[in-house]
C-alpha cells in the first residue's frame, strides 16, 4: 500500500555504520564494563538537597515528560524516587507524586513505581506518600497547585478524595512544601515561573531533572536561584545512583553512552580524514591539469 522503505535503500557504508552502532550499544548493556562514573558538583548538590529532608518535610515529585525520551528521563527519576521512598521510610518524609502530562503520570510514575516496588511497599499509602496521577492543564495545573493544593488535587489516582488522605491535611499551598523534584524533557521554564523558591518562601528548594541538551536553558535560572539545582539525563542518573549506593538504569546505560560517544567521535575523525584526503587529491589533480 505505502511506499516501501527497505534497509537496502541505504548505501552499504550507512548500513555498516548502523550495524556497528547496534553491536556497540548492545555489548555494554548485556555485559557492563563498569567504567568509573565521576560525580559532578551539581548532582552532588541535588543529592544533598534531597538528603537534607527531615521528618514531616514534604517533597513533591512532578513529572512533565513524554515517552520518546523515556530512557533519558526515567533513570534519573527512578534514582530520585528510590531516594524519596528511602527518606519516607527512614525519616518520615512525605512524598507527593503527580504528572502534568499524560505520559508523565502514566509511563513515568507507573513504570518507575513498578521498578521501585521494594522501596514503596513498606510505606503506608496516604500517610507516607500519595499519587495524584495526571493533573490536566500543564502550567495552569502547576499554578493551581501552588495556590490551592487541595483544590487542584481533588482525588488521587485511586479515586480517593484528598480529604481522606491523612498526609494531605495540612498541605494547602506551595509554602507547605519543602522541596520539589520536577522532571521535564520539554519546557523547563514552567518550573521557575510557577514554583520558584524565591517567590514561595516556604519552599526551600527545587531540583529540575532534565535532558543534557536543556542544561544551558535552565542555567540562567540556576544562577539566580529560581531553580536550586538540577540532575541531567542518564549521566546525572548514573551519578545519583553512585551517591545513593543503589545502582540502576543510569549506571547500566553509562557504559553504552561512553562507547556510543567514542564511536561517534571515531566516525567524525574518519569522515574528516577521508574528506581532507579527497580534497588534497582533487587539488593536486587540478594542478597537474
Amino acid at each position: 500500500m505505502g511506499a516501501k522503505v527497505a534497509l537496502g535503500a541505504f548505501p552499504l557504508a550507512d548500513r555498516l555504520v548502523f550495524l556497528l552502532f547496534i553491536i556497540l550499544m548492545a555489548i555494554p548493556i548485556l555485559r557492563p564494563i563498569g567504567l568509573p562514573i565521576p560525580v559532578t558538583d551539581v548532582t552532588r548538590k541535588s543529592f544533598k538537597l534531597m538528603d537534607s529532608l527531615k521528618q514531616g518535610d514534604v517533597l513533591v515529585m512532578c513529572f512533565e515528560q513524554d515517552m520518546g525520551t523515556y530512557y533519558s528521563g526515567a533513570p534519573p527519576d527512578e534514582a530520585g524516587l528510590k531516594h524519596a521512598f528511602l527518606l519516607a521510610k527512614q525519616r518520615g518524609v512525605k512524598v507527593i507524586l503527580f504528572g502534568t502530562s499524560t505520559a508523565g503520570s502514566k509511563v513515568y510514575i507507573d513504570a518507575v513505581l513498578i521498578d521501585t516496588e521494594e522501596f514503596w511497599k513498606p510505606l503506608k499509602y496516604g500517610e507516607d506518600w500519595v499519587n495524584f496521577g495526571w493533573l490536566p492543564g500543564f502550567e495552569t495545573a502547576m499554578a493551581g497547585f501552588a495556590r490551592d493544593v487541595q483544590g487542584t488535587c481533588k482525588v488521587d489516582v485511586n479515586g480517593k478524595r484528598v480529604e481522606e488522605l491523612p498526609m494531605m491535611k495540612n498541605i494547602k499551598t506551595l509554602n507547605d512544601i519543602t522541596g520539589i523534584w520536577y522532571s521535564t524533557n520539554t519546557n523547563p521554564d514552567m518550573l521557575p515561573r510557577q514554583w520558584s523558591p524565591l517567590e514561595w518562601k516556604g519552599l526551600k528548594w527545587s531540583i529540575c531533572q532534565t535532558l543534557f541538551a536543556s542544561v544551558p536553558w535552565i542555567m540562567p535560572y540556576v544562577d539566580k536561584g529560581s531553580i536550586t539545582s538540577y540532575v541531567a539525563d542518564q549521566r546525572g542518573a548514573g551519578e545519583y545512583e553512585m551517591l545513593l549506593g543503589k545502582l540502576g538504569m543510569g549506571a547500566t546505560f553509562m557504559d553504552a553512552q561512553s562507547i556510543g560517544h567514542l564511536y561517534g567521535i571515531a566516525l567524525i575523525i574518519i569522515a574528516n580524514i577521508y574528506y581532507l584526503y579527497t580534497r588534497a587529491t582533487k587539488k593536486s589533480a587540478s594542478k597537474e591539469k
Partner: peptide, 8 residues
C-alpha cells in the same frame, strides 16, 4: 561528547 560520557 567526551564531557557527558564518563569515558571522557
Amino acid at each position: 561528547m567526551l564531557n557527558v560520557a564518563p569515558i571522557g
